[in-house]
Amino acid sequence: MLAPAPRPLRLLEMLSDRFGLFEALAYSTIKLNRCTQADELAMDPLVAEAVLEFGDDLRNARAAADEWAETKGLVHP
C-alpha cells in the first residue's frame, strides 16, 4: 500500500527548506567573487543573483500559501 502524498503546503515547505542549500552556495559565491577568480566559484555570479531572487519569490509564495491556508481554516496560526 502506498503512503498518501504530502499535502501541497507541506510540499512547498519541503521545497523551501531544500532550497536553502542553493541559497548558501549563492551567498558564498557572491562573497567569494570579491576576492577570487570566477573559475574558482561554485556558480556563476549572475546565476547566484538569480538564485537569491528566486529564493525571495519562493518565500513570498510560501507566505501567501500559508496565509491562504489560515483563511480556509486548513492550518492554525
Results as ranks from 00 to 15, higher is better:
R34F: 14
A42K: 09
K31T: 11
L41N: 00
N33P: 01
P45D: 05
S28L: 12
P8R: 07
S28T: 13
S28Y: 01
A63P: 03
W68H: 10
L15P: 00
T36H: 03
P4G: 09
E13P: 00
R7S: 14
A38S: 14
A24W: 04
A63N: 12
W68D: 11
L58Y: 02
L58I: 04
A69S: 11
E40K: 15
A26W: 00
V75C: 05
A50W: 01
S16Q: 12
A24V: 05
T29A: 07
M1V: 11
C35Q: 13
C35G: 11
F22D: 01
G55W: 02
L12I: 04
L32W: 09
R18H: 08
L32H: 12
M14L: 15
D57S: 15
N60G: 11
S16V: 03
F22I: 00
P4C: 13
L58V: 01
K72I: 00
E70P: 01
L15F: 04
W68C: 14
F54K: 10
E49M: 10
Y27T: 09
K31L: 10
D39S: 10
A63H: 09
C35T: 12
F19V: 01
P8G: 14
V75A: 07
A24Q: 12
M1F: 05
M43Q: 01
R18M: 06
P6E: 06
E53S: 09
A3Q: 07
G55A: 11
E53P: 02
A42H: 03
E67L: 15
L41V: 02
Y27W: 06
L11G: 04
D17R: 13
E40P: 00
L2G: 15
V51W: 01
L74W: 07
